[in-house]
């Protein structure tokens, strides 16, 4: 049983995601990986479906994990985790090991969870394996050079959705809402939450709650990407905070079928404050920004936050 972390001073000092990896300076996904590893502790197995956090961490035959780590294909993070979990249960039942059951954590990107890896994720949750599946959302396929993914927001520039004279807004589609998909279709689900790297204590405690749950747990982590979103490397934390404060991302836990907010901003800011700092939105016209505001307002209403910024 992992205990709640009450303050930064009580947070574990040990690092299990050690320095020495090829991620960009100011990488959001690398920071959330470090926090997750810190919260999970030494008895952990990480699985890395293909994505930034596999490619940029394991270059040249070495990796930055002080705990066991295994690569899985981008399609089958959930399936490999199921196998590891079932094997551990079996050898513990047959008394072939005296090891404690480990924390099995899948660290999938938004492509490895909401797009290509969706079927394996859904199947593992349907069968009820005792794993923690983390989807870190940097809102694009960033390791191959910023291609659009289902969670890329409306209006964002990517190499697959460039803004031009024919399609002035860049990406035309609204993003997929993966945590809500996971929340209402999987009867065996034991814990579900969203977190942001700008709220590290909240994030680490949600990791621990997910690991303590006896069954499949899903955690969706917002992880700003300086390269993909075109903002300076030192603004990663600020960008994560602004996403929550403007309503583009909401922090909640699923509690008996209801969304329970874990952090509610005092005042919701207009989404313009968030998007004007990012190069990927620099081409947007006022009508597109309005559409994005409508999107944020809709998501806020779904989790019960009162909308204070109207969209025309």
């Amino acid at each position: 049983m992992l205990e709640e972390i009450k303050s930064l001073r009580k947070a574990p000092e040990e690092e299990y995601y050690v320095p020495g990896h090829r991620t960009c300076a100011g990488c959001g996904p690398a920071l959330q990986y470090r926090l997750v590893a810190k919260a999970a502790g030494p008895n952990t197995i990480f699985l890395g479906p293909t994505g930034c956090m596999y490619v940029a961490n394991t270059s040249y035959g070495c990796g930055p994990w002080a705990v066991p780590w295994i690569h899985t294909q981008i399609t089958n993070g959930g399936a490999v985790a199921s196998g590891i979990e079932a094997a551990y249960k079996a050898i513990i039942r047959k008394k072939k090991t005296d090891a404690e059951f480990p924390n099995i954590i899948v660290m999938a990107g938004d492509g490895g969870s909401s797009d290509i890896g969706l079927q394996a994720l859904s199947a593992a949750f349907y069968r009820g394996h005792n794993i923690l599946f983390i989807a870190y959302d940097n809102e694009s396929y960033a390791n191959t050079g910023i291609q659009t993914s289902p969670t890329t927001p409306y209006g964002a520039w990517t190499t697959f959705s460039p803004a031009g004279p024919v399609i002035p807004e860049g990406k035309k589609l609204m993003p997929k809402d993966l945590p809500k998909m996971m929340a209402h279709g999987h009867p065996e689900l034991k814990y579900l939450a969203t977190a942001s790297l700008s709220y590290p204590l909240d994030l680490m405690n949600k990791v621990r709650k997910g690991l303590n749950a006896e069954g499949p747990a899903f955690l969706y982590i917002h992880a700003p990407c300086p390269k993909g979103w075109s903002f300076p490397a030192d603004k990663t934390i600020e960008m994560g905070k602004l996403a929550v404060e403007t309503g583009m991302f909401q922090l909640y836990e699923l509690h008996e079928g209801q969304y329970k907010l874990t952090y509610q901003p005092k005042e919701i800011k207009p989404v313009e404050e968030y998007i004007k700092l990012q190069g990927r939105f620099s081409h947007l016209q006022p009508e597109h920004i309005q559409k994005l505001q409508q999107f944020a307002n809709g998501r806020l209403k779904e989790v019960g936050i009162e909308v204070s910024v109207p969209a025309q």
Binding site: V18, P19, G20, H21, R22, G61, C62, G63, P64
Partner: peptide
């Protein structure tokens, strides 16, 4: 080349990728 690409985990730092020069 190690069997199945298996390499030992680093303990406190990964000296295969020293990034201070960036």
């Amino acid at each position: 080349v190690p069997f199945a690409g298996t390499v030992p985990s680093p303990k406190t730092e990964n000296e295969g990728m020293i990034t201070g020069s960036w």
